[in-house]
Simulated assay, not measured.
Amino acid sequence: MEHHWINLQVYSPLEIGFLLAGTVLWNVAYFIIIRNAIRFKKMEMPFLAVCSNIAWEFSWAFLLHTDLGELFQWGLRVWFFMDVAISYFTVRYGASQMKTDLFGKMFVPFMLILVIWWIPVFYFFETEGLDTKMGTTSAYLITVVMASLFVFNASRKAPGLIGTKSVAWFKFFGNLFMTIFVFLHHPDSHFLQLLTFAVFVLNIIYILQVSRGAKANQH
């Protein structure tokens, strides 16, 4: 079977455009998260979300094959290594997100167990026919969890959280463009559309939380 760099037989140029835009914006958000971790020695992304994210990206970068084309397959591999950096800083600073150190020296083994558990979950989710051929459903399932954790951390003013407006906005528009892709390419996938709606609402809540926090710090 011939592998194309971009699969324009299944996906329209418009769909590819929205997907690429969303991916680029999320990569910018990742870059800012990594930069902030280096600068402030704190991790903004919730550590539970980090575990599922790196497991998803490992699964789709190396174990499964997206039908979007080779450009996206290699993009997933690049994205995976960005998540490696985020995971490294999460190991160093992620425990500070908790008001009480629940895990102590077991924090890293706990994260590792979660990652190891998530990988076969994503693998079998696709191979048993529950996912799309580019992992959209599983990606949005964990994105709902991640967006909820961002909101949860911000609501309790977790000490390890840096609520930056730039990350909030980039991930909002990144998900928004991907949501448009979902409605264009999966018009009848109502379950998936409901997941995108949940992420949209949670991202707006997080933007409001971060904006209010920034205003409070100015006074």
Rank of each mutant, 00 (worst) to 15 (best):
L208W: 12
R212S: 13
S96Y: 06
L19Y: 13
V199A: 00
I119Y: 05
G69M: 09
F177E: 02
T90L: 02
V108I: 13
S96P: 03
L176P: 00
M178F: 03
Y30N: 15
I54D: 00
F122C: 02
T66Y: 00
L208C: 11
Y11F: 15
A49L: 02
Y88E: 00
P159F: 00
S96D: 09
A214E: 07
V121T: 13
L192Q: 04
W5H: 10
H190A: 11
L114Q: 11
L25D: 01
Q209S: 05
S59Y: 06
M134E: 08
K215W: 07
V28Y: 01
V91Q: 08
F152V: 14
G135T: 09
F107V: 07
I204F: 11
T100Y: 11
L192Y: 01
G129D: 01
V145S: 06
D131T: 09
R35S: 07
K133G: 08
G22D: 03
T136A: 14
T90R: 07
E44C: 13
D67M: 08
F200D: 14
I180T: 10
T132W: 00
I180C: 04
I180S: 03
S189N: 13
C51G: 05
S189F: 10
F170K: 02
L63R: 03
M134R: 10
I34W: 05
L25I: 11
H185V: 08
S138Y: 04
H4L: 10
G104L: 04
E44I: 04
L149T: 13
W117V: 15
W60M: 04
P13D: 01
L64G: 02
W117D: 14
I16W: 04
I34Q: 02
V78W: 03
L68E: 04
S87Q: 10
L102M: 12
A154G: 12
Y88T: 07
N175S: 10
V108F: 05
T90E: 00
N175M: 02
Q9A: 14
F47K: 12
Q97F: 01
S87Y: 14
L76M: 10
I16K: 08
T164P: 09
L76C: 08
K105P: 04
S155A: 13
T143D: 12
V78F: 10
L208G: 09
W5C: 04
G75V: 07
Y140A: 05
Q73P: 06
V10R: 14
S52A: 15
F183T: 15
L76N: 13
L176Q: 04
N7H: 08
F152C: 12
M178D: 06
D101G: 01
F173M: 07
C51D: 04
A21R: 05
H3V: 15
Y140V: 11
G104V: 03
F80W: 11
R212H: 12
L202R: 08
H4R: 13
M1L: 12
F110Q: 07
L64E: 09
